[in-house]
Design a protein around this nucleic acid. Structure first.
Lengths: 141, 141
DNA sequence: CAAACAATCATACTTTTGGGTGATGGATAA
DNA sequence: TTATCCATCACCCAAAAGTATGATTGTTTG
């Protein structure tokens, strides 16, 4: 990351030196100021794209793997409750309704109610689909 | 994507118009050419970074999603058959055993056999766990 | 060729899941 | 304070999933 910044500084310096050198030449007065500005703009756009990609490429991958952004918008839009989300999490981890019930210290019937409500809200028919869909919607990692 | 290119062109045009306008002003001669070039360079680096991220952000995600490296090592190590893998895929897509049977034109009982074998090989008890595990092992996307 | 394996299917049985309905207590909002 | 929503639970029934066992056919491989 620091290399990128150093390289960028060097590019800027190189530009200035180039300009200095060109002042002793004869080309500088043959072209308009706009032309030079345009060239510099295009070149440094390219530099920017390159630097931007360099800086974010490695980060992007890590972000996508480790950093999970909960989709609050969909969560509220679908009207899913906290408890239901909790059940959904355990469901996604492959637990049976009975196991979920044991973990949350509530009855199996309650889990069934929660899951049934979840399936309604997620518009799915099976728990596998619910897990799939809620992952797509970024409700669970 | 096209919007980005259009916006970039507009930025360039804006720069030229700004220069044209400044020629009638008084600021242009107070500062050195190098200064302007530096400013333009920095600004267009920023534009470049922004445009670069815009252009690649969606692509990066797609690449990460579509590019899936099948873990052949685990596949052979666990001794999973082609047909079983096929069933696993459909299972992961949230299909019921009956639906999978219909898709593959084989009996429901056969699917049950395949899935039972899968659960043994994957060392899991339920289909949700099988899906989870096989995703971890990079057997399915 | 015989053994091993993959794919197919069956039958029978148990467990899990899902659908529908209704009920209760508590919190919260109109 | 009444209405609404959430969380809880129960009961019943049906469907789906999973377990166990055994059998047949075709392919592959030592």
């Amino acid at each position: 990351m620091k290399k990128i910044i150093i390289l960028y500084g060097l590019s800027l310096a190189a530009l200035l030196f180039l300009m200095q050198w060109l002042q002793f030449g004869f080309i500088i007065r043959d072209m308009s100021l706009e032309f030079y500005l345009g060239v510099v703009a295009v070149v440094f756009t390219a530099v920017g794209v390159w630097a931007g990609l360099r800086l974010t490429n490695s980060k992007t991958k890590i972000i996508l793997k480790t950093h999970f952004n909960f989709n609050e918008a969909e969560y509220t839009r679908l009207g899913i409750s906290k408890r239901e989300l909790e059940v959904l999490h355990l469901m996604a981890q492959g637990f049976s309704n009975q196991e979920i019930a044991d973990k949350l210290f509530i009855s199996l019937n309650t889990i069934k109610t929660h899951s049934a409500n979840l399936f309604l809200k997620l518009e799915v028919k099976r728990r596998t689909q619910a897990v799939q869909r809620s992952k797509e919607l970024m409700l669970i990692p």
